[in-house]
Amino acid sequence: MLQAIADGLLNGSIIALGAIGLTLTMGILRFANFAHAELITWGAYVALAVVAVLPPLVGAIAPFSFGLPLLIGIVVAMAASSALALAADAAVFRPLRARRSESMTLVFASFGVALLVRMAVLLIFGGSAQYYSNELTFAVEVLPGLMLLPDQVFTFGLTAALWLALHLFLQRTTLGLSMRALAENPDLTRVNGVDVARVTRWTWIIGGSMAAIAGVLYGLSVQLRPEIGFHLILPLFTAAILGGLGNVTGALMGGMIVGLAESLSVLIIPPEYKPAVPFLILLAVLFIRPGGLFGALGVAR
């Protein structure tokens, strides 16, 4: 039970990081971006390429399984995922927005972009499972019945730090305030002279960076495959909707809830059905409280 909660929170951290970016694009750019999950895959693989290219400068930093190359890899991956997000926006989404296409057209285009990115990853990196490090680290029994890997503590800590940073950014900076304003009332914001293009750009950069980190953490705790993003689409959307669109803290909580529910569900249903758990949560939320548990739009109203 304790183990299941810990596993759930760790998985939830990764879902939460992905969902933060998704909730921002859904709140600010106003379309459900199916390609968002592929930014996770892309980031994870870019970090893998960095780790493969760099010499292991100082070896693994005890007690973790990774060293400096992976930390550099995270930074490069953040840049790469942001770049991919911006490129997709410039090539596909912006022209469609400029034409005032319906939002469903954008959703649909994102469906196509997702397929393209996934296949590109498959083409470049191959389809078999890969790891950042082939060294196995062993879990430590923290409490009776609770085993944790050092890497998992890192994952949890990093997620908490990123959430705090993002929260402060949205509360304290002009850019952050513009983003919130745009999420809450686009017409008014446009009239009041907010630079919409700039806000859009930063929405992609923040979303892409968070996704890249999520991807690296995923690869660290599990493995890399071209399908990791695809399998995360449903948990990500569920977390974002559960938290309320545009709500960063909500997405974080939503991610944790989805992660916990997946992990705890194994205690009552066969694990084979676990991937359906986010769908059941989603259905329940849409029937009962479609605005999400934590209120839609705006970070803290």
């Binding site: 199916f34 469903m104 769908f279």
Partner: peptide, 20 residues
């Protein structure tokens, strides 16, 4: 609801049906 909820939910039901 907003149109994209249908997209997300249909995506989800396809995965769930596959599992069943």
């Amino acid at each position: 609801l907003r149109g994209e909820y249908l997209a997300i939910t249909t995506f989800g039901i396809a995965i769930s049906i596959q599992l069943v």
